[in-house]
Design a binder for these strands. Structure first.
Length: 414
RNA sequence: GCGGACGUAGCUCAGUUGGCAGAGCACAAGGUUGUGGCCCUUGGGGUCGUGGGUUCAAGCCCCAUCGUUCGCCCCA
């Protein structure tokens, strides 16, 4: 019988690793609350249609990476590959939107994409997501970015680079796209990789993003969106840049920054680390003004970002586990019941600790106490049982005293 | 979906031209009848990922398969 094991690309996170995730979530909660954001938890499964419409039918995520399956009534469900679509759906469904209002949400949780796993990329992965609905202002873009930077500073990640770009709006992007496509059309086939030859007609912006050196060279002189953006987009982007500089946040202007999900427009950004292998992007986001309407909601604008917890965790030092205050060592089986009730009293008094449930030799019990990392060991053997006492031994210094059992808590207390 | 590397004890890994499966760490007991960490001794532990093939003989060679991992692609 083959051993049952976890699914490829899924992970079990024990103490050290799990601790990083709760640390990330707790500090995210604290930081985002200071900006007026509230937590929202949405389902992990949605109707497939939501993602197909929201993310874009021709993206890789929708085209080949979704966990999609029929439920018992034959409806097509999918495990969410990203959070924004679900949050937007919840927002629309709640009916909370009033024109002019601004709505701020953050959410944590697992996402699923059927990809080949590698460093920093799991099939079940975890994101911290932030979404702000209702504000068309570039100051909101800037504040969201600053909040992300604030969070990353709070978790003590410093060596990260912030890249920003604008993708243009529905007014100016089509024209830019056309001139870019025209430029790319003149490049001889041999100069581009196979993917880019296909992309230059279908999705010319993505050619800019190609990592193949030849393609980089070929597109080096391509027209930049920075020059072709409309006045409003430029003005907005200037506001964002000025706000970041004003706040002292260093950033890199990356005109080649193109996001993979169709709904992005206007300001986009990515946070990159050079220390975690080839999946180097730890966070990414931007503005998605058309999305809420696309999904059947009001014509409300949106901005947000997603932050990959696996990738942040790679950068985080392990969090040392909490050490217990006491370990009760039992030398005589007759002492097991007294040991457990003593342990309960100590826990009720606020101490943390472990208690032997099987008796053993002094040597084996003390070794176990030592391994647990406990500060103090309480020893209950035949002598102590006879006199109603307990030995309180410091595992650091080796000093020990014998006290009546009911005084154990105060003996631990100092 | 494509490519490379790797699967031997709980963990990290040796294993020669194919010739009786090993070390370190960890664990357990003892050295010390009730005193841990350091040290010493002893001990328990393995279908060599799985299934085929070649061979007198396979951990080693061949094929397949599963898993892990790094990269491509894509993305957080």
């Amino acid at each position: 019988m083959a051993k049952i094991q976890k699914i490829k690309g899924f992970a079990d996170l024990f103490a050290d690793e799990a601790g990083k995730y709760t640390f990330l979530e707790n500090t995210a909660r604290a930081v985002f609350s200071r900006y007026g954001y509230g937590e929202l938890r949405t389902p992990v499964v949605e109707f497939t249609e939501l993602f197909a419409k929201g993310i874009g039918q021709d993206t890789d995520v929708v085209g080949k990476e979704m966990y999609t399956f029929p439920d018992r009534k034959g409806r097509s469900l999918t495990l969410r590959p990203e959070a924004t679509a679900g949050v937007v759906r919840a927002f629309i469904e709640s009916g909370a939107y009033q024109p002019g209002g601004v709505y701020r949400y953050f959410t944590f949780g697992p996402m699923f994409r059927y990809e080949r796993p590698q460093k920093g990329r799991m099939r079940q992965f975890h994101q911290i997501n932030v979404e702000c609905f209702g504000s068309p202002s570039a100051f909101t873009d800037a504040e969201v970015l600053l909040m992300l930077a604030d969070f990353l500073t709070a978790v003590e990640l410093e060596r990260l680079s912030f890249e920003i770009n604008t993708l243009g709006c529905p007014d100016c992007r089509p024209a830019y796209r056309a001139t870019l496509a025209e430029f790319l059309g003149k490049i001889p086939d041999e100069a581009l990789c196979e993917d880019c030859r296909r992309r230059r007609a279908a999705n010319p912006l993505r050619v800019l993003d190609c990592k193949v050196p030849g393609c980089r060279e070929a597109s080096a002189a391509a027209p930049s969106i920075q020059d072709k953006a409309c006045g409003r987009c430029r003005a907005n982007f200037d506001i964002v840049r000025a706000a970041l500089s004003g706040a002292g946040l260093a950033y890199v202007l990356n005109p080649r920054l193109v996001r993979g999900l169709d709904y992005y427009q206007g300001t986009t950004f990515e946070v990159v680390s050079g220390d975690i292998g080839s999946q180097s992007s730890v966070a990414g986001g931007g503005r998605y003004d058309g999305l809420i309407r696309t999904l059947g909601g009001p014509d409300a604008p949106g901005v947000g970002f997603a932050c990959g917890m696996e990738r942040l965790a790679l950068l985080l030092a392990g969090r040392p586990a909490e050490k217990p205050d006491f370990h009760i060592a039992v030398l005589d089986p007759a002492g097991l019941a007294a040991a457990l009730s003593l342990a309960q009293q100590l826990r009720a008094a606020g101490f943390s600790g472990l208690c032997d449930h099987e008796a053993g030799s002094m040597k084996s019990r003390l070794r176990a106490a030592d391994r647990s990392g406990a500060r103090q060991c309480l020893i209950i053997g035949g002598d102590e049982l006879a006199t109603g006492t307990v030995v309180v031994k410091s595992l650091a210094t080796g000093e020990q005293t014998t006290v009546p059992m009911e005084r154990a808590a105060s003996a631990l207390g100092k």
